[in-house]
């Protein structure tokens, strides 16, 4: 060991902070979806080959690999296909626990997306439950899913399991 190394300790940890900035481009299809949210409507896109409606669409049908050019306006209503009750507090939590996150399949869509379920006790949420979107006030609408305040039960009879089993 040389004189310079004597008395030194081996380096066991090296911190190398990394920070990168990006300009995100949602793309043509997702921009249509986001602009729809800013108007308070759900806009999906239909595959010209298999006819499935994706929301949000990424611009192509992942099954057929073709562009989903046809824009389809979907209603505010749909069903809970599956859900999760959140009981664990965490930093930055915006909703009082327990609350329910659900996969919501809008009527006419062929893919579900995640939404908050409110105006119903968490232990009463169930698969097949009919729900509708509650939008934020018009002056708060923006190109973001934050435009959807939450989903709430419509009170209609539950959907049959067979009607959504392929979306689980």
């Amino acid at each position: 060991m040389s004189g310079a190394e004597a008395g030194t300790q081996p380096v066991t940890v090296l911190e190398t902070p990394i920070h990168l900035d990006y300009v995100f481009t949602p793309g043509i299809a997702q921009s249509i979806f986001l602009r729809g949210l800013a108007r308070g409507v759900f806009l999906g896109q239909r595959c010209p080959t298999c006819g499935k409606v994706y929301i949000p669409s990424r611009g192509s049908c992942p099954v057929d690999g073709v562009a989903t050019d046809e824009v389809v306006e979907l209603p505010d209503t749909g069903i809970v296909t599956t859900y999760c009750v959140v009981n664990v507090p965490f930093a930055g939590q915006a909703v009082e626990i327990p609350y329910t996150c659900a996969q919501v399949l809008l009527d006419g869509a062929n893919i579900s997306f995640m939404g908050l379920i409110q105006e119903v006790p968490a232990d009463q949420v169930r698969m097949g439950m009919r729900v509708e979107a509650v939008w934020v006030p018009p002056d708060e609408l923006g190109p973001s899913l934050a435009s959807v305040k939450y989903f709430r039960p419509t009170g209609e009879p539950d959907a049959l399991y067979e009607s959504y089993e392929e979306y689980l």
Binding site: T25, G27, I28, S31, R58, G59, V66, A67
Partner: peptide, 11 residues
């Protein structure tokens, strides 16, 4: 490429 995302560029 300002408007298309990667999938839309590639398709």
């Amino acid at each position: 490429e300002a408007s298309r995302n990667e999938v839309e560029l590639l398709m």
